[in-house]
Amino acid sequence: MADTVLFDLFGVIARKQSSSGQELLVTTAAVSASVFWESYWALRMPYDRGEVTGFEYWRQVAAALRTTIDDNQIARLIDADIASWSAVDDDMVTLVEQTAASGRRVALLSNIPEELAVHYEEHHRWLQHFDVVAFSCRIGHAKPEPDAYRWCCRALDLAPGRILFVDDRAENVQAAEAIGMPGHLFIGLTQARQAITEPDMALRR
């Protein structure tokens, strides 16, 4: 059994981006949904890595959309973006707490921009259960880049094979496995609990 469980945040402990939040973002940007999401995701990685600020990111999105937005509109977009990613799965929070209480170490690796990271730090005390919190905006690497996983290994002072990685995206799990971490593709609470508590479950799909 792996000594430590390294959890993803969004799609595992936190909910995926809400549909109502997505609608608010598109409405605030005042453009069509199809062009909005293409630019939103195409420019997201540097924002997640902390290479640009929220204001810089949204100005880049506006330029890609061939529109202009003022500082007030950018502030509303940042707030709407945070709100769209803010829902948490309480059952998964409980699993994290139970895992930590059992004596296992728990850690977190998330692709997340600074503004959203601050929101989680201010509103979710359960983050204190994690021995290591690796926010992409703070470590300069984002999944599925190998250095994101290696950063966690160094911070935990563990070999990859002693860390079980749990994520809802296959490409992220595969990247972790490529450096030697056992991985679990998250599809729900029951399977995640089994992967964490049963040694031979980690590599099952």
Rank of each mutant, 00 (worst) to 15 (best):
D70A: 13
R125A: 15
G183I: 00
D200V: 08
D147V: 07
G11W: 12
D89P: 00
A14H: 12
Y149E: 03
W37C: 15
H124T: 03
I179R: 02
D91Y: 06
A176T: 02
V61P: 09
P182N: 12
E51Y: 13
F55I: 10
D168E: 01
Y149N: 04
A2L: 02
D91M: 11
P182H: 03
Q194F: 11
D8Y: 08
L108W: 05
D48T: 00
R66W: 03
S20K: 13
G50I: 01
L24C: 05
L9M: 14
Q98W: 06
V52K: 03
P113I: 11
S20I: 08
E23P: 03
F165P: 05
M181Q: 03
T53P: 05
L65K: 12
L158D: 00
L24F: 05
S32C: 15
A142P: 12
G21M: 04
R193I: 06
D89C: 04
R205E: 07
A80S: 09
E38P: 15
N172C: 14
C137D: 01
E114L: 06
D81G: 03
R169P: 01
I82D: 03
R125Y: 05
M92T: 04
L65S: 14
T27F: 00
P182R: 00
I13Y: 04
D8W: 05
K16L: 15
W58S: 13
L95A: 05
P144S: 12
C137I: 04
A192L: 02
R76D: 15
V5C: 00
F165M: 13
W58V: 05
S39Q: 07
R15H: 11
I69C: 08
H184T: 15
S39G: 06
D131E: 13
E56N: 13
Q60R: 14
E114D: 15
R76K: 14
A14L: 12
S19H: 06
E145D: 15
G54I: 11
T68G: 08
M181W: 04
A42D: 09
A175F: 06
L65G: 09
D8T: 12
F165S: 01
R154N: 10
A63M: 11
A83V: 07
R49S: 10
Y149F: 14
Q194L: 04
A176C: 02
I112L: 07
T190I: 05
Q174S: 15
F10M: 15
A29H: 11
L6F: 00
F7M: 14
A75G: 14
E122M: 10
A80M: 09
A80E: 09
Q22L: 04
A175E: 08
I112D: 00
G11A: 06
F36Q: 14
V26P: 05
S86H: 15
I78P: 09
A2I: 00
A170S: 14
A155F: 09
R205D: 13
A83P: 02
L109G: 01
A100I: 02
P146A: 07
D168M: 07
A101Q: 10
E171G: 01
L24V: 07
W37S: 14
D90M: 12
A192I: 04
A14I: 08
L156H: 08
F130V: 07
E121G: 03
L65R: 11
